[in-house]
């Protein structure tokens, strides 16, 4: 779910094209957009407080015997519905392996690569202190 939540609807469609077609699904709820209240902790590790809200979109679908659900940050209804459908399909024994190979694994690799690039840019701005000692 963490991988689907970070993938755009376009990216999901693109990778689904490489997988066997998903069976039809029925929308049980949504997709609808609302808010989640983000929380923080005082001092980073103390008492929780309400920080502020963020938009989120959720969708619940059924696909045969399987139920799928997605809640994702943002307002992309297509992303939430596709993520819920993929969540359902991953529970179907015939589809799980091909979906993992065609959708989840490549998306995970792309997201890991993006994170690694950010980490490498940050690393390039690491300060290496040297101390000048005047000795006479």
């Amino acid at each position: 779910m963490s991988i689907l939540a970070r993938a755009s609807a376009d990216a999901l469609r693109e990778h689904l094209a490489d997988a066997p077609p998903l069976p039809a699904h029925t929308r049980l709820k949504g997709p609808d957009t609302g808010l989640v209240m983000l929380r923080g902790r005082a001092g980073g590790d103390g008492t929780p407080f309400n920080l502020m809200e963020a938009t989120a979109t959720r969708c619940t679908v059924s696909m045969g015997q399987a139920m799928g659900h997605a809640t994702v940050l943002g307002r992309d209804a297509a992303q939430a519905e596709l993520a819920a459908a993929i969540d359902a399909a991953l529970q179907l024994p015939d589809l799980r392996a091909p979906l993992l190979a065609a959708v989840i694994e490549p998306l995970a690799a792309a997201q890991d690569a993006a994170r690694a690039e950010t980490a490498r840019k940050a690393e390039a701005t690491r300060v290496n202190f040297f101390t000048m000692v005047a000795m006479r």
């Binding site: 609302g34 808010l35 209240m37 983000l38 980073g44 929780p48 309400n50 989120a56």
Partner: peptide, 15 residues
């Protein structure tokens, strides 16, 4: 924001 329903509260962010 006032037009949207509230789904709930998240877990505290782990900074």
């Amino acid at each position: 924001r006032n037009t949207l329903p509230r789904f709930g509260y998240t877990a505290p962010l782990d900074t």
